[in-house]
Every structure is written in C-alpha cells, then in structure tokens.
Simulated assay, not measured.
Amino acid sequence: MISLSSRRRFPASRCKVAALVAIGAAVVASGCGGKITVTKTDTSVRRGAEIFYERCSGCHSISAANAYGSKPAGQLEPGERTNGPDFNVRRVRRDDVLFAIRNGGFSGQIMPANIVVGRDAELVADFLATCSGRRNRSICEAEK
C-alpha cells in the first residue's frame, strides 16, 4: 500500500501548464471540420455567423457558420432531443428568427429563450435570413 506521503508531487506550475495544454487541445479539436465561410467583406453577416457558431451550433446546423448541431451528419434517425432545425435545408425569414430567439423556438420546443439578445440577436437573424436554405452562395460560401 502506498502512503500519501510517499506519492510524488508535481509543482503547481506544472499542473497549470498541463491544464492549459488540455484546454488548448479541446479548443482546437472543437473547431475541427471546417471554418466559417461567410465573406469577411459583409461584416454584419460574418459577425452573425460567428455568434451563431458560438451560441447556436450545439443544436442547429448551417455549414456557412461551421455549425453541425448535435446530430452527426448523415444520420437518418431523429437523433438527440436537442437537435434543432438544419438551416442548410430550412429557409427562414428574419422576423421568424427573431421570434424564435425571443420565445424559445416555436410550439414549446426546448430552445432557451433569449439565447442571444439585442444587436447580437439581430445579427444572427440577418445571417440566417441571408444564408439559410443555401441562399446567397457568393456571400455565404465565399471562403471555401
């Protein structure tokens, strides 16, 4: 049996370095599989894509924002309860997006209300109105 006093201890600085390396690896791995392809010249739509990636990509998919939801690509089964609409397929209007953001989706779905607010909500709505349903490929898929 090993006593606590005989265990090798690591200096606090080594533990901090190891933790930072692990966090860095997780951040890099989370971005694997693509990048936001919205043109940088349309700054408001680009910023909306970035916010969508940060706040909405856990449940919703749209390739222009490198967002693939919680359901693996190509899976035919319904998947997770938190799978939101695939905006590569579904076209949406700005007002409908703002309604869903404010009210937590439509018809009592599990989307949290006000996941983004204010100007950020407007930017996400503009992005989806521009890029959902594979619209505006010159803007939304410009950086492939």
Rank of each mutant, 00 (worst) to 15 (best):
M1R: 10
M1P: 11
S5W: 08
S6C: 07
F10M: 14
A12G: 10
S13W: 13
S13H: 12
R14M: 14
R14Y: 11
C15I: 15
C15A: 13
A18H: 04
A19F: 06
A19C: 09
A19P: 00
A22H: 08
I23T: 12
I23A: 15
G24M: 07
A26P: 00
A29R: 11
G31W: 08
G31S: 10
G33H: 08
K35P: 01
K35I: 07
K35G: 12
I36D: 08
K40P: 00
K40W: 00
T41G: 10
D42C: 02
R46H: 12
R46I: 04
R46A: 11
R47P: 03
A49F: 01
E50T: 10
Y53T: 00
R55I: 00
S57E: 06
C59V: 04
S61D: 10
I62V: 09
A64R: 03
A65V: 08
N66V: 02
A67P: 03
Y68V: 03
G69C: 05
A73R: 07
Q75P: 02
L76C: 05
L76D: 08
E77G: 15
P78M: 05
R81C: 03
R81P: 00
N83Q: 13
N83Y: 03
N83V: 13
G84N: 07
D86E: 07
D86R: 04
N88V: 04
R90K: 15
V92Q: 02
V97W: 08
V97N: 09
A100T: 07
I101F: 03
I101A: 06
I101C: 07
R102V: 08
G104W: 01
G105L: 04
S107T: 08
S107I: 09
S107W: 09
G108E: 06
I110Q: 11
M111C: 08
A113S: 14
N114Y: 04
I115V: 12
D120A: 14
L123F: 01
F127R: 05
L128W: 08
S138L: 08
S138V: 07
S138K: 13
E143Q: 09
